[in-house]
């Protein structure tokens, strides 16, 4: 550790000042806009207006619901996939991890675009459903919450899997066999051993996925359209169609609160389980 404070500040301040000037200050001003009245005083009337509209309520709840659903489902699939991957032989493991990371290198525009073809009435999903006799008529999947859910899950699942892979790898190698020897079944092993030992990975992955769902614009725009709005598409509409910057600021604040709340909640859930474990021990 070097002690020279002036040097340390000279090294760190340019980055901090840049981030503050370009990012922090404008965002804070933007957020404060939603709390101002025309006379310049402070008010929450914009928030009351926003939440008194049934359309906005529906959009808010939908965003919350889809974000939570995508996070939970990606955690379930993520554990299965990450567990499968860490149990592969080393050479295979690298290749499969590469395949999981690969979609992150591809433009979300392209990835979302593909779903229009896949989920369409004449797309492969409907063809398969009809061939398997699941449905006689083509189902309408596009422009629905289901379509947005599938699109978002595909977009953010890799983040969850990667977070869980590193968490599982950092787990003591003998934890699972030990629990098995002691007679725990797989459900107990997961609940009592794996989950507590990988909670950090879950928190990181969960936060990334949930925040991602709140940030993604292109997926709800293409797969949902104006019929199935989410907060981010609603915000774009408020700015670009209605010129309503106050409403946009309100939505921005809600989105930020939601992502912070999700982070805190996930941490809570993780520590709560930890305490339980300690109490049990």
């Amino acid at each position: 550790m070097f002690q020279n404070r002036a040097e340390a500040l000279a090294l760190a301040l340019p980055a901090a000042i840049f981030a503050a000037a370009v990012f922090l200050v404008p965002v804070v001003i933007l957020l404060s806009d939603g709390f101002r009245n025309p006379a310049g005083g402070w008010t929450i009337s914009a928030y009351i207006d926003f939440f008194s509209s049934p359309l906005n309520q529906a959009v808010f709840l939908r965003t919350l619901k889809l974000g939570a659903l995508v996070t939970v489902v990606s955690a379930v699939i993520g554990y299965a996939a990450a567990f499968a991957i860490v149990n592969l032989e080393p050479g295979m493991k690298g290749k499969v991890t590469g395949l999981v990371v690969l979609p992150l290198m591809i433009s979300p525009v392209a990835r979302t675009y593909a779903w229009i073809v896949i989920l369409g009435r004449t797309g492969i999903v409907n063809q398969a459903f009809q061939a398997l006799g699941i449905s006689d008529v083509p189902l309408r999947i596009l422009f629905s919450e289901t379509a947005i859910f599938i699109g978002l899950l595909q977009l953010f699942l890799p983040l969850m899997i990667i977070s869980l892979i590193s968490a599982l790898e950092n787990m003591p190698k003998d934890a699972v066999p030990a629990a098995r020897v002691l007679g725990a079944n797989w459900f107990q092993v997961f609940w009592k051993v794996i989950l507590p030992l990988t909670k950090e990975g879950l928190v990181v992955g969960g936060t990334l996925v949930f925040t991602g769902c709140l940030t993604a614009y292109i997926t709800p725009a293409i797969l949902g359209g104006s019929k199935v709005l989410m907060l981010e598409t609603l915000m774009y509409q408020q700015v670009s169609v209605s010129n309503n910057f106050v409403a946009a600021s309100v939505i921005a604040f809600i989105l930020i609160v939601m992502s912070f709340a999700a982070n805190i909640l996930l941490k809570r859930v993780a520590t709560a389980r930890n305490k339980q474990r300690r109490a049990a021990a």
Partner: peptide, 22 residues
């Protein structure tokens, strides 16, 4: 509103939707 496939904003998209028999 529940029956109508979509309330479009970009007319170009309709070509694809027509092609897919959406």
């Amino acid at each position: 509103k529940d029956e109508i496939v979509t309330f479009y904003e970009k007319s170009s998209q309709l070509v694809q939707l027509m092609k897919q028999e959406e």
